[in-house]
């Protein structure tokens, strides 16, 4: 899969490129409006990561032109402006997703994956990992083809990990993703441990070959059989 990162901050661009390359993407970079236009004129990409505040032009203008030319690239907007209006404006212009700075790198790769999945024609829309299949739309989890009943929070936790397999997920980040931003005010993570414990037991009981591994007590990592 081929990506174009349009971002003016060199350091952020570099770390994004490095990470995404590490995940097996082909990554191209553009630092301003003109070079982005040049790249897009010459090549086609699967997904564009677009910062809308660019030197030399407005990222939204670039997006508009892409859509007017019926380009098939998916676009994820990356913006320092985290406001509903900007989000709506971006999505109305045809962006596929909107990610506010600062973001977690894992979040970025998860969004790319989900955008790619959406643009895929046919096939199952859910995530498959080992013998576990998770469908976010119908909130269903199957293990070896059998439905497993999960509570709302357990499902949210599993979905979060399924989109970030093999990555260490900090428990704070996980809690924020599942419970909401204000979770930082809690004085301990017992509520999180309890949910993860239940989820693990349910996965184990159903014979899943993926496992939520605790890492030093900092967080968790979803491990899955390599051969799958």
């Amino acid at each position: 899969m081929k990506l174009l990162i349009v971002e003016d901050e060199p350091s952020l661009r570099e770390i994004m490129a490095r990470t995404l390359r590490g995940e097996g993407y082909v990554v191209e970079q553009a630092s301003d409006y003109t070079s982005a236009v040049d790249k897009l004129a010459g090549y086609s990409y699967d997904c564009i990561l677009l910062d809308i505040m660019l030197p030399g032009g407005d990222g939204l203008q670039l997006l508009k032109e892409l859509k007017e030319n019926d380009r098939r690239e998916s676009v994820i907007i990356i913006s320092a402006k985290d406001s509903l209006e900007d989000k709506v404006a971006g999505l109305e212009l045809g962006a596929d997703d909107y990610l506010a700075k600062p973001f977690h790198l894992m979040e970025l790769s998860a969004r790319i994956r989900s955008v790619a999945r959406r643009s895929m024609v046919g096939g199952r829309k859910g995530f498959t990992l080992g013998n576990v299949y998770l469908d976010p739309e119908s909130s269903r989890v199957e293990i070896d083809g059998c439905d497993v009943a999960l509570l709302k929070k357990e499902f949210a936790i599993l979905a979060y990990f399924m989109q970030r397999p093999g990555h260490l997920v900090d428990k704070t980040v996980l809690a924020e993703a599942v419970w909401g931003d204000h979770v930082d005010q809690a004085d301990n993570f017992h509520f999180l441990y309890a949910q993860v414990k239940n989820l693990r037991r349910k996965l184990e009981d159903a014979g899943a070959n993926i496992e939520l591994k605790a890492v030093y007590g900092f967080g968790y990592k979803l491990v899955f059989p390599e051969d799958n």
């Binding site: 901050e9 350091s11 952020l12 770390i15 994004m16 490095r18 990470t19 590490g22 320092a80 985290d82 506010a100 700075k101 600062p102 973001f103 977690h104 790198l105 894992m106 990555h167 260490l168 900090d170």
Partner: peptide, 17 residues
Amino acid sequence: QTPLAVLGARMDWLLDN
């Protein structure tokens, strides 16, 4: 926002890679 994103991203990278 952007420098914070850079900082966070680099820490993520360290942890993961």
